[in-house]
Simulated scan of single mutants.
Amino acid sequence: MARRLRSVDLDFVPVAPLRLVFAAEVSAPPEAVYRALAEDVEGWPSWFTAVTAARPTAAGAGREVRLKGGTMFQETVLAKEPGERYAYRVDETNAPALQALLEEWRLSPAATGTGTRVQWTFAADGPAPFRFTLRLGRAGLARAFRDAVRNLDERLAVTSG
């Protein structure tokens, strides 16, 4: 059964009790990556394999996301800055122990001069055992992020080519 989480805003990202930050570079420009993140919500399952379904809600001000294993999120979009940042807060979920969650995707030009540096911050709160378990799962989240960004880069190369 879904339950309501604590409402947090963008200022939660730097102070969250648990912050997991992952970064990778892709060859696509920031604007294309941003479009895939923020404007093609339904396309997420094609590149982020943990996502089984995603759809915008509230005329794009929210999202509904389902993950493998049955986890569900009802989200509110907090930042839509084309080519730079996309962030959303989870308002309701069936994930146990989670008390607050905000995810932020930051985009910047890659150090190589072409492409995009993609940074994903997973800012969460929950009881100490929950935070400990998520820290233990960091490697799995890192792998999921790397795979997702690689898949997204391949998808964008096909759609732009």
Rank of each mutant, 00 (worst) to 15 (best):
R19W: 08
A54V: 02
T93Q: 02
E42I: 02
V15S: 13
R6H: 14
R143L: 13
L98C: 08
R35M: 12
R6M: 07
E154S: 07
Y88N: 03
V13G: 07
V41T: 11
E92I: 02
P29V: 15
V33I: 15
D91V: 06
A139M: 12
A87W: 01
Q99Y: 00
N94G: 03
D9L: 03
L107F: 08
F122I: 06
F73T: 00
V158H: 09
V8S: 07
L141R: 13
R155H: 11
S7L: 09
E42K: 08
Y86M: 01
T133R: 13
R89M: 10
R106K: 05
G115M: 11
R106Q: 13
E103Y: 03
A32C: 10
A32Y: 10
G83K: 06
V8F: 07
Y34P: 04
L10G: 10
T49K: 13
L37C: 09
E39N: 08
P17W: 15
L78I: 01
V15N: 13
A2D: 11
A58K: 09
T52S: 13
S108T: 14
D125W: 08
G140V: 12
L156M: 05
L136C: 08
A36L: 04
P129N: 12
A58G: 09
P30W: 11
E104K: 00
V21M: 11
W44F: 10
E25K: 03
V90M: 09
E104R: 07
R85W: 03
V90A: 11
L5W: 02
F48W: 13
R155V: 05
R106I: 01
E64P: 00
A110N: 10
L78C: 04
R63M: 14
A157G: 05
G113P: 10
D153Y: 02
T116G: 06
A24V: 06
P127F: 07
P14K: 13
P129Y: 09
L102H: 03
L18P: 12
V149Q: 07
R35D: 12
R35K: 14
S108E: 15
V21P: 01
T121D: 01
P127T: 01
R6L: 12
D153A: 06
F122K: 05
A50F: 10
D125F: 05
R146F: 02
V118M: 05
G69Y: 04
T71D: 02
L156S: 08
R35V: 14
P45G: 02
V77Q: 08
L10P: 00
A61P: 03
G115E: 10
V118I: 12
G126R: 10
L134D: 04
E84T: 12
L102G: 04
F130M: 11
R117K: 15
S46G: 13
